[in-house]
Amino acid sequence: MTEAAISVEGLRKKFGSVVALDGIDFDVPAGSVFGLLGPNGAGKTTAVRILTTILTPDGGRAKVLGRDVVKDQSFVRASIGLAGQFAAVDENLTGSENLRLIGKLTHMPRHLIKARVDELLERFDLTEAATRPSKTYSGGMKRRLDVAAALVHRPPVLFLDEPTTGLDPAGRADVWEMVEELVTDGTTVLLTTQYLEEADRLAEQLAVVDHGKVIASGSPAKLKATIGSTVIDFGLSSQAAAKRAAKVLIGLTTSEPIVDGKTVEINAKDGAKVLPDLLRALDKARIKPTTINLREPSLDDVFLALTGHKAEEEAA
């Protein structure tokens, strides 16, 4: 019995003449973390808004726990939690009042609300700040309160729309830890993100979205295998030198070197191991790189490998 907690089939949505979703499909197994990875304007948020019953799709089907998000809105709303890119908390209310409000509005039995609110404040490290208006909170605290608010009624399915956008590294690490903990509860999490690193760390399965379409899907490991797990950038003194270096490096790794201005970018399965070979080859050809940079692939690299173009920045 591996029924999908979320299933999306040929989902379409247009805003005027702008196509936000152009027939998108994916399934999220119950109890797993699923990542929707893509640049701004790829359609991630639109998909989340349809799945959380906020928007009606123009075509296709979307189900949460086997129930249609359009026909069975009240069931779906009772089963989901949503935390968005902007902390959706009332700034005038304290942390504890914010959570109690959600408890009331999700029609929880009165006697359960207080215990649940205290439990969440404790878990999200907000007990001390619980009686302060949330406008006094730091960005990271507000985001934690926002996620806590999404969990008050203990929804089996949680949507996190870019939960770390705009957070500092410490806040980001907080959110990551929180998501990992949720999965141990059995909650199904759908997460959207622009960061490959985040998707890689949290998601068991990924769908890469571009222009309202899924352009690749699978486990992060599989996706990385297609593009290599390390990116090596060689900086050279001129574009001509870069082009010469690229020629020298052809065939040394599984991917083709790409020239971008004065840099040569090359993907490798294991950067640390192939780096000496690459340097030796360059040395033999008497090419001296001015800089060498070894890094994890970014969303741009994934897009470059999958589509041949970099992730485009577009307004959502």
């Binding site: 109890g31 009772a78 999700t106 929880m108 039995p109 359960l112 929804p155 509860d185 059995g186 909650t187």
Partner: peptide, 8 residues
């Protein structure tokens, strides 16, 4: 999976 606490 957690059971929802939503009342009906």
């Amino acid at each position: 999976p957690p059971t929802s606490l939503v009342g009906h």
